[in-house]
Design a protein around this nucleic acid. Structure first.
Length: 260
DNA sequence: ATGGCTTGCATAGCAAGA
């Protein structure tokens, strides 16, 4: 089973680019972020015609997450637990029934948090604390769990072409990195890191300043695997070439191959 | 860079992103 996460930066603007990548990469399960669409107008037929079940959790203009799956999907849950007043659409989870295992799959769009300090940064850290609680609860289920999405966290200096440029940014501040480690530490594995050590591998390049052509990127899209999911992993990678194609998102797909 | 692109939207300049 090939499972990917992809921040598409607006589904309306990215239908063609996303369809082209699906046809080329043939993922079985895709976690989408920043669909920037309400559920009612999400172009689900494009994906249903390709054999995907479509589950969305959108809102108007901003944020929004979705799951595409060629395998059956059960028990879909929308919204991150822990704050009933939070109306931002940043979390969706579902059970995907593979040929050999049932996986609990969570798609997430973690808040950016800039400018820091400030209320947006406070929201980011509070959201990460809620995610840590949910991640711990899922570990206790002993199912294979995948936490995939746009984390808006540069975990280490190796994950940025110019780490000094991000020193005071909400994506790399010590408190952001510590909160990321608190999610990881109870038992999750950063899938890409186990497969490819060292720097120079990114998942986002800004639209400004020729960032792609200068390879001035950051790695902020991650797939975290519970022990039971890590045991199933056969391979992991980043489809960086997608960033150089027509009308691209500023993020690219990050994927894993699972024996599931 | 005090944001140099890109997206969405009450379609005209904003807000938000990272």
């Amino acid at each position: 089973m090939k499972l990917a996460t992809f921040n598409i930066n607006g589904i309306k603007a990215r239908v063609q680019a996303l369809a082209d990548w699906l046809d080329d990469a043939q993922p079985d399960v895709v976690l989408l972020q920043e669909i920037k669409s309400i559920d009612a107008v999400f172009p689900r037929e494009v994906f249903e015609d390709r054999g995907y079940a479509v589950e969305t959790h959108g809102q108007k203009s901003f944020n929004g997450v979705a799951i595409l799956s060629k395998y059956p999907v059960e028990d879909v849950s929308r919204g991150l637990p822990g704050d009933d007043s939070d109306e931002q659409a940043r979390w969706i989870e579902a059970t995907v029934i593979g040929d050999h295992a049932a996986l609990r799959v969570c798609g997430l769009y973690l808040p950016n948090g800039n400018p820091a300090p400030g209320p947006k940064y406070d929201y980011k850290l509070a959201w990460m604390a809620r995610m840590e609680a949910r991640a711990r609860a899922l570990l206790a289920s002993e199912m294979p769990v995948i936490l995939g999405g746009d984390y808006n966290v540069i975990p280490q200096d190796d994950d940025a072409a110019r780490p000094e440029a991000w020193r005071k940014d909400a994506l790399a501040l010590p408190a952001s990195r510590a909160a990321f480690r608190r999610i990881l530490h109870p038992g999750y594995t950063d899938a890409f890191r186990t497969r490819v050590p060292g720097g120079g591998h990114y998942s986002f390049w800004a639209y400004q300043g020729g960032a792609w052509n200068r390879n001035d990127g950051i790695r902020i899209d991650h797939l975290l695997l519970s022990p039971q999911a890590a045991d199933l992993m056969r391979d992991a990678g980043i489809d960086a070439e997608v960033r150089g194609q027509q009308k691209p998102s500023d993020h690219v797909p990050v994927w894993i191959d699972l024996a599931a």
